[in-house]
Design a binder for these strands. Structure first.
Length: 750
RNA sequence: UGGGGUAUCGCCAAGCGGUAAGGCACUAGUUUUUGGUACUGGUAUUCGGGGGUUCGAAUCCCUCUACCCCAUCCA
């Protein structure tokens, strides 16, 4: 819970605190035109998660405004995904199509206001008229139609009197807007298509930009959270809601970065290619990043949710490492699932000195997993071990069975290799071994030390199962095409051998196959005749890693990329003159002079202030930095403070009535309220304290309270000077003279 | 090329003028009948680059660079 808040939660919290809204209400609004993937999971986790965290509500809304791409099967898949992840939507599932009548009325209203018109140019003309990113567009002649004509045309569009593409309804905004989205965006188009819910009732369908904001409003959404690519659409969102002058409160849109994971593709198009190209078995292929795929693979909803939680929410486009996801599922399953033994690549071992048969008690869980349960494990003369677990010529650091090195059979006895049997080609076909009777697991008195315990199955009792080993679908971190497909992403082992209890007792559907990884009984192909297990994820394998790392890649020195500075636009003649004057006469440094000279508002503000107080450098600094910020932040608006006030502030700074730190504070007050700086200082008692006899005891106290940091400082961590100064300043409400504090601290800590 | 965004460790990501959080990955060690888990350490003298303001800058100012989004009758 100590995890820091993301920016969306921060916004929500502030809005709740300020009373902007009584309750948060979010929504997850997919278009039902494809199967949900892990990117949707992130959106689900955000929208439902925020609603849950702040005791609000979250709707599930199908944004079904395009009848040609949407289908009911997708709405079912979407509902399943939300449910599987453990969330419940508020009330019933919403559909934008439910609002078609209302949306139509809003459009009529816009037409009546003269804010929307029916346009009748064709697509090609439309593109031409829209202009380009650098050139303004222009309106078509149809924009001049009267309100009556527009109303009539729009109604006839609705009644199906026109063909597709003959007319559209557009918002009347600004064909020369720098934001391309605002160049009279389309609101409605004619579409004679069967909608998956409304059938043929409608001939016109609203566009995203018109439908989404209003659907949010209709549902009482407070925070409309979407991905970054809609940033430019926010202006329309606001425009529609504002020009309609709807009763408050209204929703606001915020954008976050969509999820990208390396070695996977996420776009609907690429996913579809995989399915149609037969590279995968379907949308629920365990290698697919779809919710159905993860589900079939054996991922738990908890692990997906933890993953979404761990990656955070931000506005920077980023690419998450799959290993983060893999960690989440391993971590989740580690404490949940039974451990069993399954041999993937069997090597026969005959224990020559064992003729009996026994059943061993074996716990399903290791000691560090607080769960109980055990099964009977048959042990006999003939067993199978993993081929990897024997080596005749072991590499360095090999812990398993060798001709010289005994090994423990997990839950059973220690065995030693006596003889290696090979076929004509020299392949090992069998091991003859002996067991040590006194070494039985749990009552070992043999005193034999082994380096590891390996898994095994009893030959006679073991069941044959099919195991499907999955690896990442692509070999490329950022897959481009099918050429990047990993040819080994699926390996099927038909004759793996598993201990019988797994099949007969079915203690769970997910297992850890000891020393191999986590596996899931395939929900579709599993049958008692041929049990099928999907590999969810492997265990961490530091041995395998060590082996592979032989050709240790040289540390790439990766010299910092040299950055070349671009050219700075030249100054105009008057700017240059100003710059020269500032640097030569007023002795400003070139950087500050540059900032001032290039900005008309700044330079005139500066000149004004200068006429009242002859302190060119201090004034220039504050204008070029603080005033510049205020100007930037309140673009267009007039400043609340005057040059005269700034001059007064600088004067106090000049005669050291206040410190520079306090000056910033006062400036901010002044910028916010327009109050006189002298008054602010007086009212708050912000006069600087430079008296060492006042400051010294404060520093002493801080030093006494922070012995650790004092020690660190004395050990050479000089950065900590700032810490002590900061503490002293905090203790005096920022009033202590920082220069004096600095000196004092340095002296006392010496 | 206009507009809108974004840049903090190999990958995510906190941070909002006063000691560069955390997770993954990596790495060393301890425990271990899973080369798993758990635990303990190590990993950014530095925040895209360069300047400036300040006693003090990842945070404020200027400037440059790189990447993403926008010219579908898609969402």
């Amino acid at each position: 819970m100590s995890k820091s808040k993301d920016f969306l939660r921060t916004i929500v919290e502030e809005d709740l605190k300020s009373g902007k809204y009584q309750e948060v209400h979010t929504r997850f609004p997919p278009e039902p035109n494809g199967f949900p993937h892990i990117g949707h999971a992130k959106s689900i986790a955000i929208n439902f998660g925020i609603a849950r965290d702040y005791q609000g509500r979250c709707n599930l809304r199908m944004d079904d405004t395009n009848p040609t791409t949407e289908d009911t099967k997708y709405v079912e898949a979407l509902k399943d995904a939300v449910k599987w992840l453990g969330f419940e939507w508020d009330d019933s599932v919403r559909f934008t199509s439910d609002y078609f009548p209302k949306l139509y009325d809003y459009a009529v209203e816009l037409i009546k206001m003269g804010k929307a018109y029916v346009d009748s140019i064709n697509e090609e003309e439309m593109r031409e008229y829209r202009g380009t990113v650098t050139e303004a567009g222009k309106r078509s002649k149809y924009a001049e139609r009267s309100v009556e004509e527009n109303l009539d045309l729009f109604e006839r569009m609705k009644n199906g009197e026109f063909k597709d593409g003959e007319h559209v309804l557009r918002a009347r905004i600004d064909m020369s807007a720098a934001n391309m989205q605002m160049r009279d965006p389309l609101l409605y188009r004619i579409r004679h298509a069967k909608h998956h819910r409304t059938g043929n009732e409608w001939s016109i369908y609203p566009m995203y930009d018109f439908a989404h904001c209003l659907s949010d409003y209709i549902e009482g959404i407070t925070h409309s959270l979407c991905t970054l690519e809609f940033e430019n659409n926010r202006a329309i969102y606001d425009w529609v809601l504002d020009t309609l002058e709807l009763d408050p409160p209204r929703p606001y849109q915020y954008e976050f970065a969509r999820l990208a994971v390396n070695y996977t593709v996420m776009s609907k198009r690429k996913l579809l290619e995989l399915v149609e190209g037969g590279q995968v078995s379907g949308w629920d292929d365990p290698r697919m990043p779809t919710i159905a795929g993860y589900k079939r693979r054996g991922y738990t909803p908890e692990s997906i949710l933890t993953f979404c939680d761990q990656i955070g929410i931000a506005k920077a486009n980023s690419m998450v490492d799959v290993s983060q996801l893999e960690f989440c599922i391993r971590d989740d399953l580690n404490t949940k699932v039974p451990r069993v033994m399954c041999v993937l690549d069997p090597l026969k071992v005959t224990i020559t000195n064992y003729d009996e048969k026994e059943e061993l008690d074996a716990s399903y869980y290791p000691d560090d997993v607080p769960k109980e349960g055990f099964r009977k494990l048959p042990f006999s003369r003939e067993i199978y071990i993993e081929r990897d677990d024997f080596s005749q010529t072991p590499p360095k650091g090999y812990f398993r069975l060798t001709p010289e090195q005994p090994v423990r059979l997990k839950h059973a006895y220690i065995i030693s290799c006596e003889e290696v049997i090979k076929d004509a080609n020299g392949n090992i076909t069998e091991i003859k071994a002996v067991y040590h009777p006194a070494s039985k697991s749990g009552s070992d008195t043999s005193g034999i030390k082994v380096k590891s315990a390996i898994h095994w199955v009893s030959a006679k009792e073991a069941k044959t199962v099919e195991v499907r080993l999955y690896d990442r679908l692509f070999t490329n971190e950022v897959p481009e095409s099918v050429e990047d497909i990993n040819p080994d992403s699926l390996k099927i082992i038909k004759n793996a051998l598993i201990e019988p209890a797994v099949i007969t007792d079915k203690p769970d559907e997910r297992f850890q196959f000891e020393r191999q990884g986590y596996f899931y009984a395939d929900p579709i192909d599993y049958s008692d005749e041929t049990p099928v297990f999907n590999k969810i994820v492997g265990l961490k394998d530091s041995w395998g890693k060590k082996k592979k790392k032989a050709p240790k890649s040289e540390h790439k020195p990766q010299a910092k990329k040299e950055q070349i500075d671009g050219e700075v636009a030249p100054m105009s003649e008057s700017e240059q003159a100003l710059f020269d004057k500032y640097t030569a006469e007023l002795k400003l440094n070139s950087e500050v002079a540059n900032t001032l000279a290039r900005d008309k508002r700044l330079s005139s503000f500066y000149e004004d202030a200068l006429s009242m107080l002859n302190s060119p450098v201090a004034l220039a600094n504050i204008v070029a930095n603080e005033v510049a910020r205020e100007l930037k932040e309140n673009e267009g608006e007039t400043l609340k403070f005057t040059a005269k006030q700034v001059a007064k502030l600088v004067k106090m700074l000049d005669n050291e009535t206040i410190s520079s730190k306090i000056a910033k504070q006062v400036f901010e007050e002044m910028a916010k309220s327009g109050e006189e700086p002298t008054q602010i200082v007086e009212a708050k008692g912000l006069i600087q304290i430079s008296d060492t006899s006042v400051i010294a005891p404060i520093i002493d106290e801080i030093i006494a309270k922070n012995p650790d940091n004092v020690a660190k400082f004395k050990a050479g961590n000089t950065k900590l000077l700032g810490f002590f100064v900061g503490q002293a300043l905090k203790a005096t409400g920022g009033k202590a003279n920082p220069k004096v504090v600095n000196e004092l601290v340095a002296k006392k800590l010496k």
